[in-house]
Amino acid sequence: MPEGMLVTGATGFIGGQLIRRLADQPSIVVRGAVRATPAGDHSGLIAVGEINGDTDWSEALKGQHAIVHTAARAHIMDDEAADPLTEFRSVNVAGTLNLARQAAAAGVERFVFISSIKVNGEQTTSGHCFTADDVPAPEDPYGISKREAEEGLQQIAEETGLEVVIIRPPLVYGQGVKGNFANMTKLIAKGFPLPLGAIHNKRSLVALDNLLDLIINCIANPAAANQVFLVSDGEDLSTSELLRCVGKAMGQPARLLPVPAKLLQIGATVLGKKAMAQRLLGSLQVDTSKTREMLGWEPPVSVDEGLRRCFKNSQDE
C-alpha cells in the first residue's frame, strides 16, 4: 500500500516542486499543506491556516507516514517587523514544534526538517568549511529561530521516538527563486554593469533539483534517522564566477567591472548594506562529506546544468 507523505509549504519554492517530484512515485500518496487553499485546482492540498503554536494539524496528519516541513517565515534582508526574532519564533519554532508533537501523537514515523546553513553561521574563513557537526553559531534572528527549532525537534525525537532528519541548505537556486539571486539575474538580463568582477571568495550553493533529490533520499533512508546533513552542489564558486555562469545560462553575458573588494566593503558600510556585502564578498563553504558517506548520496546535477534548468523557460520563449 502506498505510504502517506505530508509536505508543508506546498505552494512554496521548495515544497511545490517537491510535491511534483513525489507525485511521480507510485509508492507515495502525497498531500500538501497550505495556509489557504489557492484558486483553481487544489486536489491534494489541505488548508491549515496560519502556522504557529496553535495550528490544528489533525486533518492533515491523518494516514501520514512521514512529513517534509518546508513551510517557514523566510529570511528577509530588510525586515521591517518591530521584533523580527519574535516573528520568526512564532512560525519557525513554535509552529514547527507544534507540528512535530502532533505528528508524533498521530503515529508519523519520520519528520524531515528543512533548516538553514545560517544555523552554522554567516561566513567561513579561508581553508575552513562548515560541517554538520560544528557547534551552531547563528547570528541573525532567522538563523537563531532555525537553531531553536532544531533543538526542540531533537528533544521531541528523544521523548517520542519520532525520527527527525535535519537538512541545512545554503543558497538554493532554481526556477521561481526569489531574493538576491533573482535580483542579480534581472540586472544581468538588462545588461546592467555590476562591480563584482574582482571578487575571489568561495561560496557553496545548491540547485533545487539536488536539494529535492537529497530530501527524497532522507525520507526513506534508514541511515538518515536523527541526523543533521549539509547539502551543496559540490562546486564552490566566487561571486564573479557565479555571475558569469548565470549569464552563460541566460544567454546574456554578465558585465562585470573589476572593483576591489575592499572598496566595495567600504561603500556598503557607508550605505548601511553590510549584510548584503557579506553575502556578495564573503565566503561560505560547506563540507558535505557526512551526507555523501552516510547516505551514499551524490548531487545528480552540476552547477552548469542546474543553472540551465533555472532559466530553461526563459530560454525557450
Rank of each mutant, 00 (worst) to 15 (best):
P2N: 04
M5P: 08
L6Y: 11
T8I: 04
Q17H: 13
I19V: 06
I19T: 06
R21A: 10
L22W: 14
D24E: 07
S27F: 08
V29I: 12
G32I: 10
A39R: 01
H42Q: 15
G44A: 05
G44D: 05
E50T: 06
N52K: 06
N52Q: 06
T55G: 08
W57R: 00
A60D: 07
L61T: 02
Q64E: 06
Q64L: 04
A66P: 00
A66S: 11
V68F: 14
T70P: 06
R73D: 08
A74V: 15
A74M: 10
M77P: 01
D78P: 07
E80L: 08
D83Y: 01
T86M: 07
E87I: 10
R89Q: 12
V91R: 02
A94K: 08
A100M: 14
Q102F: 10
Q102N: 09
G107C: 06
G107P: 14
V108C: 11
E109L: 05
F111Q: 02
F111M: 00
N120I: 08
G127P: 01
G127V: 11
C129Y: 13
F130P: 02
A132H: 12
V135W: 15
P136Y: 13
D140K: 11
G143W: 15
A149L: 11
G152T: 13
G152D: 11
A157F: 03
E158Y: 11
E163V: 05
E163Y: 05
V164R: 04
V165Q: 04
R168S: 00
P169V: 05
P169Q: 02
G174T: 01
A182E: 10
N183Q: 12
L187R: 14
K190T: 01
P193N: 09
P195L: 12
L196W: 06
A198W: 05
I199Y: 02
R203G: 08
S204T: 03
S204P: 01
V206W: 08
L208I: 13
D209Y: 03
L211P: 00
D213W: 15
I216C: 10
I216Q: 12
C218P: 02
P222K: 13
A223D: 05
N226H: 03
F229D: 04
L230A: 09
V231K: 11
S232I: 09
D233N: 15
D233A: 11
D236P: 03
S238N: 09
S238L: 15
T239Y: 05
L243Q: 04
L243F: 15
R244I: 10
V246T: 09
V246Q: 14
G247H: 10
L257Q: 07
L257T: 12
P260A: 13
A268T: 09
V270F: 11
M276G: 03
R279N: 03
L280G: 04
L280C: 06
V286M: 04
D287P: 09
D287M: 07
S289Y: 07
S289P: 06
R292K: 11
G296I: 14
G296F: 08
S302C: 13
R308P: 02
F311V: 03
K312S: 15
Q315N: 15
